[in-house]
Design a binder for these strands. Structure first.
Lengths: 115, 115
DNA sequence: CCTTTTCATCGTTTATCGCCGATGGACGAT
DNA sequence: ATCGTCCATCGGCGATAAACGATGAAAAGG
C-alpha cells in the first residue's frame, strides 16, 4: 500500500492545512527538480513561446520525452498551453514562477525567524 | 541503461556549465520536493536543532524513514549534521537555504528579462 | 487524395523513491 | 556485564519517474 503519511489527513500529527501547504510547495518544486525541465523553462522564456518541436530540436531528447516534460510543467501550472493549428504553443507563466519563488522565500524566512 | 541526456556531457546540445547549473538547482529542489522534508526543515528551524528522535516523535514516520529524509537533506547541503554523543544533531543551514531561494529568484528573473 | 509534419498518448523497460522492519553499533545507566 | 536508548544502514516491496519507440489523430502542402 505504501500510502505516505502525508498523502492524507489523519496520518500525521500536524494540522492539515500546514501539511497541505507543504504538499503544494513540494509539488511545484518537484516540477522544477529535473534539469531538463529547468532548461526547458529557460528556453521557453528566452523565446517568448515555443512549440514542442522547437524544444525537441534544441535538446537531445525524444519528442515523446519532451512532450511529457512539457505536460508536467503545464500540470504544475508553471507553463501555459495553447493549441495553435497543428502546433502547440507553450509559454512560461511568469506569475506562477514568481509565486514559486515567493513560496521558497517565505519558507526560508520562516526558518530564519524561528518559524 | 536509461542514462539521462543531462547526466553527462556530450548528450546535450547545450554548454556544459549551463546544464550543470540546472543540475545543481534541480538537485536542491529535489531535496525540497517532499512534504515530509519541508516539514522537517521547518521543525528543525523552529527548534534550533534536533536529534533524530525528536523528529520521529513529531511525525508519524518510522525512525528509519526519518533518518533517510535527514540524510537526503544533509547530502543536499541544506542541513548540517553533527554527531553528539550517542545522539545526532541536525541543524538547518540557513545560508544554504537562502542560497536556494536566491537561485530560484535568479531563475525567475532570467525568465522575466528574456534570459 | 496522399504525404509530411506536428504532437499527444500508450506500452514497455529500467531506475529511483518512499516506506518499513530488522539488524547491529555506540553510549549511558544500572 | 547487561540492559535500554538512539541511530544509521540494509534488504525488500510497491509505486512512481524517466526514457524511448510506435501509433494514430489533426493540420498543411503537394
Amino acid at each position: 500500500m505504501t500510502e505516505s503519511p502525508f498523502e492524507s489527513a489523519g496520518h500525521c500529527r500536524l494540522p492539515e492545512d500546514v501539511v497541505s501547504d507543504s504538499r503544494a510547495i513540494a509539488a511545484r518544486m518537484a516540477a522544477l527538480s529535473h534539469p531538463a525541465r529547468i532548461e526547458i523553462i529557460k528556453h521557453l522564456s528566452a523565446n517568448n513561446s515555443c512549440c514542442c518541436r522547437e524544444v525537441v530540436d534544441r535538446f537531445d531528447l525524444a519528442q515523446s520525452t519532451v512532450s511529457q516534460h512539457l505536460k508536467i510543467l503545464v500540470e504544475a501550472g508553471l507553463v501555459r498551453f495553447e493549441p495553435d493549428r497543428q502546433r502547440s504553443r507553450y509559454e512560461v507563466d511568469r506569475a506562477a514562477l514568481a509565486d514559486v519563488s515567493a513560496s521558497v522565500a517565505a519558507l526560508v524566512n520562516s526558518c530564519c525567524s524561528g518559524r
